[in-house]
């Protein structure tokens, strides 16, 4: 009986072994590069999110179980880059938020991932919308307004995409609220 099973299946087993070996070789060659790609995606944004920081000097850190980046230049730490996500209009939105070292001011926002409606919600990735965040206070909650933001913590909504605009502000508010204490504490410890 056992012979019979082997006679039936030897080709499948052999192919499985060969293919498995091939995949292992591919994976071991490329996995480092793939992980680097994932990291680069965030690290490349650091100089834009925290003006003055350099990509090379910045380091990755883990605070309270979350991955954060210390935006640094040779002179010292200028700020933090933290990530946050939440529900948008269509799907989850993943953001990177740059703040100064004492978490008093937002220095930049970048959209890592979004699947909002093309032509409407996906305009949250445009410079015109995102540049509003730089210079906003990190200690006050951001508020979305329809026309003409006046106060520093007011953000103009994208025409026709109020829900996406509000989602971005909400994610930033939540992320800052969650991380502020931990970041300041980590800075004070040094």
């Amino acid at each position: 009986m056992r012979n019979n099973y082997l006679a039936q299946a030897w080709l499948v087993i052999l192919l499985g072994l060969c293919f498995g070996g091939m995949l292992a070789a591919v994976e071991s060659t490329l996995s480092g590069r793939i992980a680097q790609n994932r990291l680069d995606e965030t690290v490349d944004q650091i100089p834009k999110l925290v003006p003055g920081a350099t990509r090379e000097a910045s380091t990755q850190d883990e605070i309270d179980g979350e991955r954060v980046f210390r935006a640094e230049n040779p002179a010292g730490q200028l700020g933090w880059v933290i990530s946050g996500g939440g529900q948008g209009f269509a799907d989850r939105i993943e953001l990177l938020v740059g703040v100064d070292a004492r978490v008093r001011e937002i220095t930049g926002v970048y959209v890592l991932e979004q699947k909002e409606t093309p032509g409407l919600g996906n305009r949250i990735t445009e410079e015109g919308f995102l540049s509003q965040f730089a210079g906003s206070p990190a200690e006050k909650e951001l508020v979305v307004v329809k026309t003409g933001a006046r106060a520093a913590n007011e953000i103009d909504a994208i025409t026709g995409a109020t829900i996406s605009s509000e989602a971005v502000c909400r994610i930033i508010n939540q992320t800052l609220k969650r991380m502020r204490g931990d970041l300041v504490a980590a800075l004070d410890k040094e």
């Binding site: 091939m22 995949l23 591919v26 994976e27 490329l30 590069r33 793939i34 790609n37 994932r38 995606e41």
Partner: peptide, 13 residues
Amino acid sequence: VTIVDRFLAAYMY
């Protein structure tokens, strides 16, 4: 397919 997937992730992220 897995090989293609890994190559894309490595070289065309």
